[in-house]
Design a protein around this nucleic acid. Sequence first.
DNA 1: CAAACTTTTCAAAAAAAAATGAAATAAGCA
DNA 2: TGCTTATTTCATTTTTTTTTGAAAAGTTTG
Lengths: 171, 171
Amino acid sequence: MPHLSPINGKQSIQETEQAIEIESIDFFVRMMSILGMPRSVGEIYGLLYFSAVPLPMDQIVSRLGISIGSASQGLKTLRSLKAVRTSYVAGDRRDHYLAETEFRRLFSNFIKEEIMPHMESAKERIAKMEEALPVQDEKSAEFYKIRIEKLKRLTRAGGRLLPALAGLLKL
Amino acid sequence: MPHLSPINGKQSIQETEQAIEIESIDFFVRMMSILGMPRSVGEIYGLLYFSAVPLPMDQIVSRLGISIGSASQGLKTLRSLKAVRTSYVAGDRRDHYLAETEFRRLFSNFIKEEIMPHMESAKERIAKMEEALPVQDEKSAEFYKIRIEKLKRLTRAGGRLLPALAGLLKL
DNA sequence: CAAACTTTTCAAAAAAAAATGAAATAAGCA
DNA sequence: TGCTTATTTCATTTTTTTTTGAAAAGTTTG
């Protein structure tokens, strides 16, 4: 293992920053992957989260060693979740990106964008089950009704609880 | 499109059950995929959810048209989440599976099994950041401290809120 | 205990998801 | 406007995940 520290054994400021950056990227890559986001999205957010200055895309590309295609796609995703925003930097025509660090808002956007649309289509699917049901008139009909009712309660509860969740997140 | 209904235009009980089964499988395949579970797991649960009788694995295999490997794997996953349980059927040596339909409990198990372990490793990663930090002693140290503090609040809130979530699920 | 049946495991194949990079497009500047 | 730089798009490649199927392991019962 190469010797990276100064002779006195203390790590330089750059080394500290680099160590934190690595942990941050690791942290958010895993976080995002729980939420079903690709690695690159986690990497970009992790890098920006501990950057005091807004970074242009080419900096993101070179520091993370990812392709410009991935960076562009990842930033698009992060923008749509409002997890990053662009900040104007005088005398530079590139977009510069900054991490949005208010997790409550991020979370709320994620639920609205990524989860709620599924709840809608779930409701449609339950409606189809109910369309099919009424013909059924033997004893098993009761069983089906109960199971469908459970699904309805689940989606209703989900639809109410999930958007309210962000509010519960007292950070 | 082939004519599947009887001449009177009403659908048979089997057709109704099949229609509901299809919607159920569709419903849970999507549900599970939000939670990062493979298609086969959703299919199996969707089939069992609307089955009044416990089904043995070979029934699951033949009705879903999946391999026995997938079925075995999927059932293992579902068992570990306590989303299915086996039920004894007299005079049959095969295991018979039944869906657990109490979503509150399912949800709670999912969080405990799939989410909480990540929260633990997140805490370890934050600890590493704090180890790296103290050397840093210029003005930017403050920035890092604030960001790390935010992460700590996030993981703390997550660790408390997520396990409590199932309790909020009033179905 | 051995034959018949059931289930699990796991290497290989197939499918799905993500990353790449180059061409196309867009946007700022002289 | 034309030149330069920045960004997006998307067909292709790479990587990861899931499924398959057959062999191994495990069970039950005659």
